[in-house]
């Protein structure tokens, strides 16, 4: 099983992913109960350490922790060490002294959860680091596809958008490949990273080719501020060329599903009529996020007790 931390899908074995998905599938039922809470993590403390604001992910972890009866503490802090006297590692050491049973870390810079995990006793769960990984997002996407399609092996998954800057893309590439799917990425050449093929994917700039025969079409959120970085000339041209609509979906399989990590820029990544209902499964993704994060917390949260104080 995943040893101590969940820093990225790259580190996981297929059997680890299967174990998490299976546990998550069981966790889903708890959300349908009159009392949506189990006592499993009673007396344990989970810290949400968010250096970058993200209400959606933080709330999802918070609900997940609370459904397992953990005490969830939100610790939001400014984005950069430069604006404070304290380095990120100092923050981590301070936190560790409070003996949390799990620390959920989000940071705009790749590698920060790893550095924090290096100094922390508690398990660290990466809730998104820069353009590196967002493992729980990919796991909930895998859960959604698995339940939607009954399998992942042999599917064709096309990820469209700013692959360069997307942690969701990287985690999903690793995840779907490990689970036996074929993964394609597509976008304007300025948004396809150097050496992306080394990750095991095929890269496309033609939507027709990228979507041909796809079972899963995953659009990434376009950061509109990237316009100033000259990655693309205009929102209109992006939407026209790489936006998903019923017209472009004709290239994919008839029963293809549409996914998006949210929040959707309507009319940009997805046409208006696609965002809310089938073949879009975006709301299932959100719902599955809580169960998936419950599974991860169930499997990971806990710290070694000091010797002599063990039961």
């Amino acid at each position: 099983m995943i040893a101590t931390d969940l820093l990225g899908i790259e580190d996981l074995e297929r059997s680890d992913i299967e174990q998490i998905l299976e546990a998550a599938a069981h966790m889903q039922e708890i959300g349908d109960r009159p009392v949506k809470k189990v006592p499993t993590l009673r007396g344990r403390t989970i810290v949400n350490l968010f250096f970058e604001p993200s209400t959606r992910t933080r709330t999802s972890f918070e609900i997940a922790g609370k459904r397992l009866s953990a005490d969830v503490v939100n610790f939001s802090t400014s984005s950069s060490s430069l604006s404070k006297a304290e380095s990120i590692l100092d923050t981590a050491r301070t936190l560790d002294a409070m003996q949390p049973d799990a620390v959920v870390v989000r940071h705009r810079v790749a590698g920060v959860p790893k550095r924090i995990a290096d100094v922390l006793d508690a398990p660290v769960i990466n809730a998104g680091d820069g353009a590196h990984e967002h493992p729980t997002q990919a796991l909930l996407d895998l859960l959604t596809v698995w339940q939607e399609k009954g399998r992942i092996d042999g599917l064709t998954v096309t990820i469209i958008g700013d692959i360069v800057h997307s942690r969701v893309a990287r985690s999903n590439i690793y995840g779907f490949l490990k689970m036996g799917a074929e993964v394609r990425v597509a976008g304007p050449p300025t948004m396809l990273p150097v050496g992306v093929q080394a990750l095991g994917v095929k890269a496309f700039t033609s939507m027709r080719e990228a979507l041909d025969g796809a079972d899963v079409v995953m659009a990434l959120r376009i950061q509109l501020e990237r316009l100033s970085g000259s990655l693309f000339p205009s929102i209109r041209e992006y939407a026209e060329t790489f936006g998903i609509s019923r017209r472009t979906l004709r290239y994919a399989k008839d029963d293809a599903i549409v996914m998006h990590p949210g929040p959707v820029n309507r009319g940009v990544e997805l046409s208006h009529d696609l965002a809310d209902h089938r073949p879009s499964v975006i709301l299932d993704q959100v719902r599955n996020g809580v169960a998936l994060r419950m599974a991860v917390l169930y499997l990971l949260a806990g710290r070694e007790r000091v010797a002599g104080r063990t039961e």
Partner: peptide, 14 residues
């Protein structure tokens, strides 16, 4: 900038 920066998600200097 290269396969390693792509893997690590750090901005590349070509």
């Amino acid at each position: 900038e290269g396969p390693v920066s792509t893997r690590l998600g750090l901005p590349g200097n070509p």
